[in-house]
Simulated assay, not measured.
Amino acid sequence: MLLLIPGPVTTDARVKAAGAQDYAPWDNDFRQLYRQVCEGVLAIAQAEPEEHVALALPGCGHFAVEAAIRTFVPPGGRLLAPSTGAYAARLQKLAGDAGRVAVPLHVGATERVDPQAVAAALERDPSLTHLALVYSETGSGICHDVPELARIAHALGRRVIVDAVSAFGALPLELRALPAVDAVVLTANKCLEGLPGAAFAVARRDSLEAARGNAGSWSLDLADIYQHTLAPNAGPRFTPAAPALAALAVALELYREEGREARLARYTANMRTLYDGVIGLGLTPYLPPQLQGPIVVNVHAPDAPTWHLQLFVDALKQRGYVLSNFYNTEEPTFRVGCIGAFGADQMRQAVDAMGAALRDIGITRERAGLSRFIPQPLTA
């Protein structure tokens, strides 16, 4: 099966093999592997080891997002959270449930965050101590200019938390050049092409020291996790997702061999193949070309009476491809991930399978309905 979702992703056979073994988390060899993985994540973030640290915690990306909010924003604190889509809405909910106040900033469903609007909102409300951003919004497919927005926050004396869960390892990031960023959160199972179960926060050491006592949760206290790392021969604080971390160690070796720019180029080629391919099937991408990011492509549901998302997903799965059976947009769509251990040739075959799956449920190109805008192929 090829996973065409924006995470967990299809992984290399060597990564799977590493995750198929048993590991003792407190064994000295595993402690060394654990530290090597954290150092590898820190290097990808282009952070300064003297100023930053990579902290691992079990769970999905939402665990790391909540941990960052709880750790760096004190109880009752206020943060500006641009409403970029479904995952920004989840960030806002996590903040609210943790007793923090997430102040939304309206962003159109098919718009990027406006730097001037962010600056104006921060200037209007001095009680907003933090700006919380989603780098790649998989609910829409749009990637936002997080480095530029972080620089604006820095100029206004505010701190920044970045949800880079579906962006880390592909989109540009140089933490050493972004001193306002308290933390960037990520997971193993997206652009790093590891297995699910391990989340990370790359955070500033001085911010972690200043944040002790904020979290109100022992499990999700990044400041406490950081203190644990300072002990000699430190390993995981609690039982980690050991197979996922061991698999990530292999995935990071493969990442270093490929390089970030080459990985991003491969994902972009996947995206272009998919974008043009669905147009060829008579379907309409959710975003115009100038807004389409390389991580996930959302596609408007066919304007046909026989359309049913689950039937389409089931028909495609019979051909060896797995799609999400839900959508995160206001209008019905289906979304296709462009990340994982595969290339444009496999995406081309997947598009052919989509056409066959559509025919299985009674939808031909002529009946698919290109009704929303006339999309231009990206390769034109």
Rank of each mutant, 00 (worst) to 15 (best):
Q310V: 05
P332E: 05
V336T: 09
V336Y: 02
N325E: 10
G320K: 06
A341I: 03
T306C: 11
Q349F: 03
Q318V: 03
I361C: 14
L323D: 09
L323Y: 08
Q349P: 00
F312Q: 06
S324M: 12
R365C: 08
A356D: 15
I339F: 07
P305D: 13
L370D: 01
T364K: 05
A353S: 14
F334R: 06
S371G: 08
D314H: 08
Y321A: 13
Y327T: 12
H308D: 15
G369T: 05
L311M: 08
G337L: 07
T364G: 11
Q310N: 10
F334N: 00
L323F: 13
H308M: 06
S371K: 15
R359N: 13
I363Q: 04
L309E: 05
G369F: 02
V336F: 10
F312N: 07
F342K: 02
P305N: 02
R367E: 10
D360G: 01
Y327W: 14
N325T: 02
A315Q: 09
I339Q: 11
H308P: 06
S371E: 07
G340H: 02
E330I: 11
T333F: 00
I339G: 10
N325V: 00
E331G: 04
D352K: 13
G337W: 06
M347L: 12
L309S: 07
Y321P: 12
N325D: 15
D352G: 15
A315M: 04
F342A: 11
G337Y: 05
R319V: 14
S371A: 10
G340S: 04
A353M: 09
N325G: 10
Q346A: 13
W307A: 02
S371Q: 11
A353T: 07
G340T: 01
D360S: 06
A304S: 14
D345V: 14
G355D: 14
G320W: 01
L370E: 06
A350V: 08
T306L: 13
R348D: 13
Y327R: 09
A368K: 04
T364H: 09
A353I: 05
T364A: 12
F334Y: 04
P305F: 01
F342D: 11
G343C: 09
D345P: 00
V313L: 04
T329A: 12
A356P: 02
N325L: 01
R359C: 05
G337C: 13
I361G: 12
S324H: 08
M354R: 11
V313Y: 09
A368Y: 02
N328R: 06
I361P: 08
S371V: 15
L309I: 00
G320M: 11
G355T: 12
Y327K: 03
Q318E: 15
G337R: 09
A356Q: 15
E330Y: 10
A315D: 06
F312W: 05
Q349E: 15
M347A: 07
Y321H: 14
V336G: 13
A304I: 07
